[in-house]
Design a protein around this nucleic acid. Structure first.
Length: 365
DNA sequence: CGACGTGTAAC
DNA sequence: CCTTTTACACGTCG
């Protein structure tokens, strides 16, 4: 059966969220930063609003470079995830009844299957999208961009046609035209590594990929990924819109300087563990696996993990993470660490908790 | 098959 | 100069 899927993306979410609580910065270029604390402006840009993007500032850029590129009057603010998470939750609740199924894909994005609620009508789907935009604007002051398509891939990519505050639809019959002349780099889910390999074997466009020799694809990517890629190139995506349940929680931080000192790193790890614990508690999460995340001076990441009896006590996680750290440092006496982190996974949720998550109880597994 | 570690991708 | 958080696929090992 053919479906109608919406993809809703909040426009430069963190920056807009800050405008809401600091009305005096409205209309200014805004840059949301993750300050690492090593020096005054060390760290990276998390988001820049459209005015700041005009200066070439964008996510991932070092803050120092962003400050150099910025013009007078640009506002630099530290990211505040707790605030954005609360705001995000409010917005998702606002739209959860405007669809058959809601899938929150990230803090600022959601897919909505509206096949039934729209009676299969694209006109109705557009009206639903307009209602959603209006609701979010009136209730929070935020704008969003919505893409409509016959599947998640096309809905997501259609949303990029007009941003910010856009609404665009690509119907099934137009999918071929929509995809055909596109560069493979513009296909959602194809990242730098895959692009590199594709280009090496002479594949540049979606058309090239759609017509590629399956044997060659399989040699390079294996069977499963080859099928996925060939489908993406044709705008085909059968993945269902389904509620997501958080499967893992993590917290990483940067050390004030590269170090291999157990005491120093252990202290940081403990601080991070406590913050993670606060979040886990709020969510009513229980965990079964603890991972240590270590990032060395060369920015290479390694993980060490261990599974235990299900628990909600973060002290147990903190102690285990420290053990894993001791072992790691013993195994790599020459390495200095730049960042350290802890992750808890194999999550379950307490019954009494009234979060969106446990409406849908446990996923298939 | 479950546990663990890495790679890829997106944000 | 180089932040954070999450998901998922895949290989390997026991």
């Amino acid at each position: 059966m053919s479906r109608i899927i919406l993809h809703m993306d909040l426009d430069s979410f963190y920056a807009s969220a800050e405008e809401i609580r600091h009305p005096e910065i409205k209309g200014k270029p805004i840059v949301i930063c993750v300050f690492s604390g090593r020096s005054a402006d060390s760290g990276a840009v998390a988001t820049a609003n459209y005015l700041a993007r005009k200066f070439g500032i964008k996510a991932g850029m070092p803050i120092v470079n962003a400050k150099r590129a910025a013009k007078e009057g640009t506002v630099f603010l530290a990211r505040d995830m707790d605030y954005y998470r609360d705001l995000s939750e409010r917005i998702m609740q606002l739209i959860e009844d405007d669809c058959d199924v809601l899938e929150q894909a990230s803090i600022d994005e959601a897919y909505l299957d509206v096949t039934i609620i729209s009676s299969g009508s694209w006109d109705n789907a557009k009206k639903i999208a307009e209602v959603i935009k209006k609701k979010i604007l009136e209730e929070t002051g935020l704008t969003c961009s919505i893409g409509i398509g016959p599947n998640k891939l096309i809905a997501k990519m259609a949303g990029k046609i007009k941003k910010p505050d856009g609404l665009s639809a690509v119907k099934e019959k137009d999918v071929g035209d929509f995809m055909i002349n596109r560069d493979v780099a513009d296909i959602f889910g194809i990242g730098v590594k895959t692009i590199e390999i594709l280009n090496r074997i002479g594949i540049k466009t979606a058309k090239d990929l759609a017509n590629a020799n399956p044997i060659v694809l399989i040699e390079n990517f294996g069977k499963n990924k080859s099928i996925l890629l060939a489908n993406k190139a044709r705008g085909i995506d059968d993945s269902p819109v389904e509620p997501r349940v958080m499967k893992q929680l993590s917290k990483i931080g940067t050390l004030s300087e590269d170090s291999s000192d157990m005491k120093k790193i252990g202290q940081k790890l403990e601080d991070l563990s406590i913050e993670l614990g606060t979040r886990a508690k709020k969510m009513g999460a229980l965990y079964q696996t603890v991972s240590l995340i270590a990032i060395d001076s060369s920015l290479n990441m390694q993980t060490r993990s261990k599974s235990i009896e299900e628990t909600d006590d973060i002290k147990i996680a903190a102690a285990l993470a420290k053990e894993l750290l001791e072992k790691y440092l013993a195994e790599h006496p020459e390495k200095k660490l730049r960042r350290i982190g802890i992750s808890i996974s194999n999550l379950a949720y307490k019954k009494e908790q009234k979060s969106l998550g446990d409406f849908y109880s446990m996923p298939n597994k």
